[in-house]
Write a protein that binds this DNA or RNA. Structure first.
Length: 114
DNA sequence: ATGGTGACGACGG
DNA sequence: TCCGTCGCCACCA
């Protein structure tokens, strides 16, 4: 499986996440049969553009702790993700240090397979 | 070749 | 629960 196929597999799986539910990078990795590639799932989503950005619900993927990955200081990716989630009704809580997270016990979607 | 770098995760204190 | 640390793996300078 080359990187193009990996990206395609990730996008296909992310499309399976129901509205108003979220899952983790690591879980997507498990579902496509590559459990140790959670970091690469993030890379695949990072490279989304054009039609992909419209058809892949990338905002429904967060870290295993429920935190929305920051993408580094000075970037607005995390904020955009928060807006997308709240727009479809998912509650995002803000911690003391300003970090954003989703309660996985309420919104989490972790099926053993699809 | 080689060391650094992520939209990460498991584990231990 | 909150951290620090370590493992992970494709890419890139």
């Amino acid at each position: 499986m080359d990187s193009a196929e990996f990206h395609a597999a990730v996008y296909e799986m992310v499309r399976q996440i129901p509205a108003q539910r979220v899952t983790s990078y690591g879980h997507i990795a498990k579902l496509i049969g590559m459990p140790r590639h959670s970091r690469h799932v993030g890379q695949a989503l990072k490279f989304l553009s054009g039609d992909g950005i419209e058809t892949v619900p990338w905002h429904r993927v967060v870290s295993a702790s429920g935190a929305i990955s920051s993408r580094g200081p000075g970037t607005d990716g995390a904020q955009r993700q928060r807006e997308e989630l709240e727009a479809e009704g998912v509650e995002v809580v803000i911690g003391r240090t300003g970090e954003m997270r989703v309660d996985l016990r309420t919104w989490g979607w972790f099926p053993a397979s699809v």
